[in-house]
């Protein structure tokens, strides 16, 4: 599944915000292969979003550099970088003044695709994320449930078939059952498209289920970057161990309740 072709390389990347004394992202050195599904796991405020936003140049690193397919992104026009990357933001961020169809069509329109091509693509994508185009295309975001909106956010990010997808807690506001469904759908989409996914979550179950490999972050640093199996078997430090223990305890509670 993974070719030996690095899609994203973080080289000693640091990011410090002005009014903060510590690094929000601290000396991150990571290589991600093309086609991998990487999940980034960590508690609130540990720097997951910051790390992600440096990949599409919404933030610039203070130190180090980021390479996409071997190219240092700081040397490429930010708009160009972003148009090669699909981006699903934490707050969903559909444009309220555009219909669902228009939201999905935003980037293809920026790139001046032909109208027929855009229409076909919108229908294809809405179907892909499990929304009936006839039913939803002409609605406004306010007329959709939170979960449906997140599906549209995903469709919009996929619109121009980017090789890299950044997903910042895309299922944040979704109930457990729909979340499981969406997780499966996302894995299906990933499997079919051969794209590299960077998926942020603070849910350990989600991270371990979805990720080929998992990045575990704490206070801006990467504690461990490995396959779920390896992490569970050999936690790299106390923090990772605590994380896994807490997940086990939660399962135990549920297990006991079922007895």
């Amino acid at each position: 599944m993974t070719s030996a072709n690095p899609a994203i390389i973080f080289q000693n990347v640091c990011k410090k915000f002005e009014n903060s004394r510590t690094n929000a992202v601290d000396h991150v050195d990571v290589t991600i292969q093309e086609g991998e599904f990487i999940t980034i796991l960590g508690s609130s405020g540990c720097g997951k979003t910051t790390l992600l936003k440096m990949v599409n140049r919404l933030y610039e690193p203070d130190e180090g550099k980021i390479l996409l397919f071997g190219e240092d992104i700081s040397t490429v026009d930010a708009v160009k970088v972003r148009r090669r990357i699909g981006y699903v933001i934490q707050q969903v961020g559909l444009f309220p003044h555009m219909t669902i169809g228009e939201n999905v069509a935003v980037v293809p329109k920026l790139l001046k695709w032909k109208k027929e091509k855009i229409d076909a693509r919108v229908k294809e994508l809405l179907t892909l994320v499990g929304l009936e185009p006839e039913e939803y295309e002409n609605r406004y975001p306010s007329q959709l449930s939170g979960g449906q909106q997140q599906r549209v956010g995903l469709a919009r990010a996929l619109a121009i078939d980017p090789k890299i997808m950044l997903l910042d807690e895309p299922f944040g506001a979704i109930d457990a059952i729909n979340r499981l469904n969406l997780q499966d759908e996302l894995l299906r989409i990933h499997g079919g498209l051969g794209k590299t996914f960077l998926f942020v979550t603070h849910d350990i179950h989600e991270a371990f289920k979805m990720g080929d490999r998992v990045i575990i972050m704490n206070e801006g640093e990467i504690c461990q970057f490995d396959t779920p199996r390896h992490i569970a078997a050999h936690p790299a430090n106390d923090f990772v161990e605590m994380l896994i223990r807490s997940a086990r305890e939660q399962e135990q509670i549920f297990f006991d309740a079922c007895q």
């Binding site: 936003k53 708009v79 981006y87 707050q91």
Partner: peptide
Amino acid sequence: FMLETARGIGMT
């Protein structure tokens, strides 16, 4: 976040 989304998906 709306503006950041707009930039993030590649608007000038």
